[in-house]
């Protein structure tokens, strides 16, 4: 059985257990959120030994080179000594410069980082209120946008971070930004490829970045953008996107809701996202697809598009995995 060393203590690693499991089980505090190898909240550093390849999947090269790994995805096969990385080397501090509601339950948050921050439109970061509370959000702005980093933050019932943003946050508040991560971004080089962008809820945020990036690169293929919501009030990008689509012939915006209302805009359809995709692009062979938002829907669409002929490597998915609720920890 492998031994795990952390803060001068040594623990036995049970069969199939991860570094995160073992440390939490013994009452050690390790920041974590999705526990699915996505959000990168549980980054740790190798002091001695080696971690399996899986534990560094999706990390940027500079992180790998430092021996950083994801505690939730690391099942040690041999003895290992680990530490928590110095937060300062991973994060950059930032100030809240703008905050305003976009809809009933979505807040737009704008941050100015203290140091330059490099990212690709469509990637995500983890925002930290303090040492303990961090949550991942997609970036809705563009890298060369001087107005700062923009996010769409949806209010989650009993969500600690989103409650802070929605109820207490004001300009001047400080937080720190870790990342960026994620591979849902526009890749120049195939300007005539048709692109399908599908988002539910705040899954629209990364898609907006990708759409702007594609238009800026002079993309000529079709950009079919589907935004799905429960109710018309959830289509918080409706006016912006309607206007943007008017200015760009190859951008086609498809707002759709599950629950229609009498007075909603004529352009909004009542349909499921899956149904709309099937009707719009029955044969997605050769298309590129970006899927962001609800994890169940993202996985369902991924399979649907793949079976209908889309290449697996052309499907970029960013499932918004909720953080593990506090009452389910330990």
């Amino acid at each position: 059985m492998a031994q795990l060393k952390f803060r001068d203590k040594t623990y036995e690693v049970g069969d199939g257990a991860t570094v995160l499991d073992v440390l939490l089980e013994h009452g050690q505090e390790v920041p974590n959120s999705c526990r699915a190898g996505v959000c990168q909240s549980c980054l740790m550093q190798v002091v001695e030994g080696e971690v399996p390849e899986q534990a560094q999947k999706g990390l940027k090269d500079s992180y790998r080179a430092k021996g950083l790994f994801l505690a939730c995805s690391c099942q040690p096969q041999a003895d290992l000594a680990v530490s928590l990385p110095d937060a300062a080397q991973l994060r950059v501090s930032a100030e809240v410069t703008g905050i305003r509601p976009l809809s009933e339950d979505v807040m737009e948050l704008v941050l100015q980082t203290d140091a330059p921050f490099e990212y690709q439109a469509g990637q995500f970061v983890t925002l930290w209120r303090d040492e303990r509370l961090g949550r991942s959000y997609s970036i809705a702005s563009l890298p060369d946008d001087d107005n700062g980093l923009m996010f769409h933050i949806r209010k989650v019932a009993r969500g600690e971070f989103s409650s802070w943003v929605h109820e207490d946050m004001k300009p001047g508040d400080r937080l720190s930004v870790q990342g960026p991560a994620g591979d849902c971004f526009y890749i120049p080089g195939q300007p005539d490829q048709d692109i399908l962008l599908i988002g539910t809820g705040t899954g629209l945020a990364p898609l907006l970045g990708i759409v702007h990036d594609a238009l800026r690169h002079g993309h000529r293929g079709r950009l079919q953008l589907i935004h799905g919501a429960q109710h018309p009030s959830g289509l918080y990008g409706h006016e912006t996107l309607t206007a943007l689509a008017r200015d760009h012939d190859n951008l086609i915006y498809h707002p759709c809701v599950l629950n229609a209302e009498d007075e909603m805009d004529a352009g909004i359809r009542q349909d499921t996202v899956e149904g709309l995709v099937k009707a719009l692009v029955p044969k997605p062979a050769g298309w590129k697809a970006y899927l962001c938002g609800d994890p169940d829907l993202v996985n369902k669409l991924r399979k649907q598009l793949f079976l209908a002929g889309c290449n697996m490597k052309d499907i970029n998915a960013d499932a918004f995995i909720p953080s593990t609720p506090a009452d389910r920890i330990g």
């Binding site: 793949f306 002929g309 697996m312």
Partner: peptide
């Protein structure tokens, strides 16, 4: 891709 699609 071809094989996995057939399997599914």
């Amino acid at each position: 891709d071809v094989f996995y699609r057939k399997v599914l």
